[in-house]
Write a protein that binds this DNA or RNA. Sequence first.
RNA 1: CGGGGUGUAGCGCAGUUUGGUAGCGCGCUUGGUUUGGGACCAAGAGGCCGGGAGUUCAAAUCUCCCCACCCCGACCA
Length: 570
Amino acid sequence: MRATEAFIPTLREIPAEADTISHQLLLRAGMLRKVAAGIYSILPLGHRVLLKIERIVREEMNRAGGIELLMPIIQPAEIWQQSGRWDVYGPEMFRLKDRHERGFCLGPTHEELITDLVGQEIKSYRQLPLLLYQIQNKYRDERRPRFGLLRGREFIMKDLYSFDIDEQGLEISYGKMYTAYSRIFDRCGLSIRVVEADPGAIGGGDTHEFMVMADTGEAEIIFCTACDYAADIEKAPCPVDGQPAAIEKQPLERVRTPGTRTVEEVAKYLGIPAMQVLKIMLYLADGEPVAVLIRGDRSVNEIKVQNYLQAIRLEIANAEDVAAKFGLPPGFAGPVGLQSQVRVLADNEVRHLANGVAGANEPDHHYRNVNYGRDYQVYAFDDFRVAREGDACPKCGQPVQLRRGIEVGQLFKLGTKYSKVLGATILDEGGKEVPMVMGCYGIGVTRTLAAAVEQGHDKDGIIWPYSIAPYEVVVIPVSQRDALQTNLAEALYQQLFASGIDAIYDNRAERTGVKFKDADLIGYPVRVVINDGSVVDRLVEVKWRNTGNVEKIPYADLCTYLRSKLVSNN
RNA sequence: CGGGGUGUAGCGCAGUUUGGUAGCGCGCUUGGUUUGGGACCAAGAGGCCGGGAGUUCAAAUCUCCCCACCCCGACCA
């Protein structure tokens, strides 16, 4: 490609709409433009990156035995109604009607379609296992799209769905994908951390997330400083603390605490640490009142609560609900004397909290010296809190750390959740009809592109890994008006191209400084500069974007040299 | 969905308080001088001031309604 024939609209200034690095740089480097909130055009340069990522994904999916297919973006409502997710998905789903008033949606995912398809066509255990995948657009009407490509409403995903006879088969398929994913992100030049995660609404058993470590990531990851343990904070278990405090129980005492609604206010007013306060959170779990007790310095992990209760919806009770369902005035709730129909869940730490402070269920009053057993009962103790830095690793007991990450891939064991409701059954060896055992494995392709920029950039622009750079080499003559230089540049560009290296010749009538700035911004891994000396001494300058190293190379050896370096470093 | 903010040239912004003929920088066009890290001089082009309604002799500026976008929170296969 010659720059004069290309479409690479770079920007000098940072568009005001972007404040994440990847978003800013992709806009500035002329790879991305916004069409609407969370919806983007990917310009030719960005598209090349996307194609390279997709190619790696395809190669590894195929290597693992996957077969590619295409499914529609527009999906009929009926199949979603059949799986029950038409209602569960809520406003996240783009819905539309055709001229006959039939309901459709823009597919947020494809479990329903693929399960239906495979269920229709596959009847015998002899035809399994089957690994089918697609790379295509998916749609989610996010409440708040943000961070450019990291959280859009339209995005490209690779999804592979595995169909097996039984759990053992699923294990094998899952393992293949785990290996494939490791290879994919490795080949994309990304540094990845695999974490245990919560299965969430998609359901099923084990799940792993592939995270690109980056401060801008939305996911919080707990990982051990000593061993290889890592988990999404949504899931990260908190080990039970050892000993109950050997403190004598003091008599229960009712105190006036005017205007103290938050834990901080109560603790400050009474002059005690927040961890002495018994925090109570009131929820409606599928409409039923549930109270969760937790130490004042901790946060409730609502996912753990939801999973414990097997609830579809868990929401914080608002003031009306608190009055109607809990029979309480707002702000001063506590476990002592709660109505019996309210289920009380308590985090493990609460059991050891002696002589705590809790709301008295009447305005402006708290109890001191509240103790479990004597003063209140609970429905169940379990792990209901959010892990935090410094907690003990559940695997080895050493302190854990908290870092942020971008989820670029996730593996799920779906089991028979979808095959059962959609009737995707096979006859097993004994002639018995059984549901297929499924797994699903996603990679956010557009998100991976953005994550690569989050991970690879400096003050001057993007630093692409060689394997997914839009072009591997840019050729720049110092003078665009010196025919000796431009002839050499053109010749070298042709040679690079012919030898299979992705090269671009910046032949624009721009000053050298502009070309250098653009080259750094766009992030070509290699910059080849030709000056008036090059023609005489037959040397060109090779500058590496990632290290900044500059070398003089005989131009006769350029192709061979670059090819060996680019390949060996991938 | 709750809270906050911003909409003025392709991009970044001033002008709005106190109503009076639309500005700056970058980019773009033409000519000239330059040419190893976003050059310089000169001359130009480019605006429904987000949209609608109102107040006024007069509205980018005041009032009301709507829309879009951004940020924080909640939410998120």
